[in-house]
Design a protein around this nucleic acid. Structure first.
Lengths: 333, 333
DNA sequence: TTGAAAGCGTTACCAC
DNA sequence: GTGGTAACGCTTTCAA
């Protein structure tokens, strides 16, 4: 049997409530008693039971993070920032991979509610998201990370995707491209939609007509980039440049281009999004829009803890993205 | 206030113990009562409190995973397998990044013990590991993943690192190299030590004398690979081939080589270890020793759950690694 | 098949 | 300062 607070109390010749006070350190307990209790705790190797505690306090010092896939370097970066900062404040975090499957997500949310997590980082939100309604219903504090919801004015942290899309497209235009395609993320995410908006706005600002055939829906993964790029390659007039909604899509697109016997950046210029750690080591080193993943994760926790402690909401936070120039683009005439 | 089992009981006109039985589904409750209780549960939106439950049952359906860094694609792969399979069996997993810092690790272990996690996946083990002693002390089931301990015959799952190191080195030898260097992982991990063993054994088997200056200690990260390679490059007689103990080290090594104005594989052949997802998209596509990360993580959970349920230990599991040939090596005369 | 009651390991309020 | 006691929300044994 595990040592309990009562065992400690008995061995120290005090009442269990006194031991509790010593541990919490909030009440005034005499030096002598404190010493005695502490030494007994150490001698017995006592570990408090946080579950029992939480039954009273309603706090378990545990958060959860829902993401599509931890094997995706972007989400791994977010997770790193989230976990680090949570740990710094004494919280643990439960990791949940949803694969963008609504059913899995709902199941996770049920489990997490049963376990009384103090808050949730949701990095899977879709434009109209049932999970958020559920979170609101059970009154669970949450922060939307990197994927906010349509018309949601609160509690989200993300990069300014419109500006990011604009920057990427404008850069390609500045290089002389006018046949610029875009491989987007899934249309049910605002991240994808906003990057498209930025893409369209840049084209418009520079007087380049939007070609519907140059816009393809991807999945934020290598495979999707590969498939959509294959379609672009079969066009009568293929694009000369492609802006992809994330770096993995860019990897897939480059693969398709190589397979077709063409070269990046000679035949096609590519701009990605995210700036994952390995982006500079890819072939060719990828020009991309940087998202500060670790910092975003960290900020999400800080905002989440504020929500938990002060029961407040936050206006959305928009982070300015930056273009990182490498070697996947070239100037054309 | 949250709805409790008593609220449900009252609303359904039964005793709370009856509600408990309906939920667990283990006792025989009449159709009629069952129906009534279920409909009340739904109407009130009742969510059981798993923390209160665990106080009785001593099970919380939560595991933990300790890794150095989730932003490292190798550990992200393991984590994906771990979390997926845990979820399949109804468990959640708490993620902990230790940065290979003993103090952080001990702190995590304390928190996890307080939260009564049912088991732990330890992917951070050093050759002589205090954490394991602690885990044994508090009687917490664990599995050592990818990094086992010296002389430990039980509860570890890893790739056969000796064979892996052998395979990599033998491959370079078969290409005609005899000045083969090795950038290892930290010497306090068996993974690093065993890969060195394999490296040495291959050299010996093929009659190539071991050169101490061709062996450098890295950190399993890009930076370490870069630094050690820089030293190799300054040698009077530099190696013509380098086997690195993981893919990130290879990335760093290649960076150093490029910086020196040399080419991979023309001037230096490189073999990595792990086969991270992006290995085939690096420049050049990396020849490497594959570890089935997701499968290993998954297997770790299966073995951990067996330990938890049947209170048994398992003999170590050694997975045979495979060499994946790509474009980072060339034949020399 | 169901109810009553004890107890899991804490904390927090009320005394003294 | 410290002790006693009543919860917290659930499960489980014992009766009926």
């Amino acid at each position: 049997m595990r040592i309990t607070i009562k065992d400690v109390a008995k061995a120290a010749g005090v009442h269990s409530s006194t031991v509790s006070r010593v541990i919490s350190g909030k009440s005034c307990i005499s030096q002598k008693t404190t010493q005695r209790v502490i030494s007994v705790i150490e001698k017995l190797g006592y570990t408090p039971n946080a579950l029992a505690r939480s039954l009273k306090t309603k706090k378990i010092q545990t958060l959860a993070m829902l993401i599509p896939d931890i094997a995706n370097p972007f989400f791994a970066g977010l997770a790193r920032g989230v976990e680090d900062t949570a740990n710094k404040y004494g919280y643990n975090v439960i990791l949940c991979n949803t694969d963008d499957c609504l059913e899995k997500e709902a199941n996770y949310l049920r489990l997490l509610a049963e376990k009384c997590v103090d808050g949730v980082i949701l990095a899977t939100a879709k434009i109209r998201d049932k999970s958020i309604i559920e979170l609101e219903r059970i009154n669970c504090p949450y922060i939307l990370l990197s994927r906010n919801i349509q018309g949601g004015q609160e509690n989200s942290i993300s990069v300014d995707d419109i500006t990011g899309g604009y920057l990427a497209t404008e850069y390609l235009i500045s290089l002389g491209h006018c046949k610029i395609a875009h491989i987007s993320g899934p249309y049910n995410t605002t991240a994808a939609l906003d990057r498209i908006k930025g893409y369209k706005k840049a084209l418009q600002d520079y007087g380049i007509p939007l070609q519907k055939i140059y816009l393809g829906e991807g999945d934020f993964r290598i495979k999707g980039g590969y498939q959509v790029m294959k379609q672009f390659l079969q066009l009568a007039i293929p694009p000369t440049a492609v802006f992809t909604a994330n770096d993995l899509l860019a990897v897939g697109a480059i693969e398709a281009i190589r397979e077709a016997g063409c070269d990046v950046p000679h035949d096609f210029s590519i701009v990605g999004f995210d700036d994952i750690k390995l982006a500079s080591y890819l072939s060719p080193p990828l020009t991309t829009i940087r998202q500060p993943m670790v910092e975003m994760g960290s900020l999400a926790i800080i905002k989440l803890l504020e929500r938990i402690e002060h029961k407040v909401s936050h206006p959305n936070i928009l982070i300015k993205p930056v273009l990182i120039e490498r070697k996947s683009c070239r100037e054309i005439n």
